[in-house]
């Protein structure tokens, strides 16, 4: 509750919070908000010359090149993009926590091995690795989520590793161990709770990265496959018409930007609130 109150006090975080809540509501209630089905190629969805309709009138965001209502597609696209954002990033943070915690707690050869592997993953350009994986795996929604998780856990692992190394040296852990506590107990009850702020901050910042990465993969044609709408593939489908029907590219584009920005602003504010030592550093 204290965290929420502090968030609301910051204008930029409040903006982010409002946008995120709106997007969540839009995704959840998409079937009730939209007047049209996202897949319907409407009879009056194209002009007499067969061109998509600009925003206004019956179609808030206009229609796309197949005469489908863009507003409905964006609403249902929010579902795809958010599911991937939450699932992929949840998995990435979980892997990052596990690897970082084990490497930091075990140290020695095993810990070293884990961290060298993490370094190795850092040497890969994330997007290219995701492209290679997605191109080979015949993408579906869940495959795309897994691909993104597989390239995004690395940063979390590094940060968790550093924090765990610091924690293990602290007196209260040494005391706990001398009292006879087992490794499982120390990790779960004494180290993990201290890592929660980091997990929450990266859980939020990472959603922005994930939403962007999904959009980029879909834009390249190897993300979520049409006709299932995602913000990225809506743009992918109409990119060659961007001169004649700019709304088809720039409305979803602006929505991706504002959504990613909101998660970043919330994450940044959370970092300040949860970890006062970092305040103003970056």
């Amino acid at each position: 509750m204290r965290v929420l109150r502090e968030l609301i006090r910051r204008p930029s975080a409040l903006f982010g919070l409002v946008v995120v809540v709106l997007v969540l509501l839009a995704a959840i209630f998409a079937p009730w908000i939209a007047h049209f089905s996202p897949d319907d190629q409407l009879a009056d969805g194209l002009s007499l010359e067969g061109a998509p309709l600009p925003p206004g009138g019956d179609h808030l965001f206009g229609t796309d090149t197949l005469g489908r209502d863009l507003f409905a597609r964006v609403l249902f696209g929010a579902r795809t993009s958010l599911i991937i954002g939450l699932v992929a990033n949840g998995v990435a943070v979980a892997i990052g926590l596990l690897v970082g915690l084990l490497a930091g707690y075990l140290r020695g050869a095993a810990g070293n091995l884990l961290m060298r592997f993490t370094d190795l993953m850092m040497a890969f350009p994330a997007l290219l690795l995701a492209i290679a994986l997605a191109a080979l795996l015949r993408p579906s929604l869940w495959i795309v989520a897994m691909v993104i998780a597989l390239v995004n856990w690395v940063q979390v692992a590094r940060i968790v590793y550093t924090e765990t190394r610091g924690l293990v040296e602290r007196d209260f852990i040494v005391a706990e161990r001398s009292l006879g506590a087992g490794n499982g107990r120390i990790i779960l009850l004494h180290i993990l709770p201290h890592l929660m702020p980091t997990a929450i901050v990266w859980g939020t910042l990472g959603i922005a990265t994930t939403v962007l990465l999904e959009a980029t993969l879909s834009f390249l044609g190897i993300g979520v496959q049409p006709p299932q709408p995602s913000w990225g593939n809506i743009i992918f489908e109409s990119q060659s018409y961007f001169q004649d029907a700019p709304w088809l590219v720039f409305i979803p584009g602006a929505i991706i930007l504002v959504t990613a920005l909101s998660f970043n602003l919330i994450g940044d504010a959370l970092r300040d609130i949860l970890d006062p030592t970092q305040r103003g550093r970056l």
Binding site: F219, I256, L257
Partner: peptide, 12 residues
């Protein structure tokens, strides 16, 4: 804003 922008949208 920079790190939140989808590169392909900015390009277009």
């Amino acid at each position: 804003v920079g790190v939140s922008s989808p590169q392909f949208v900015v390009a277009l």
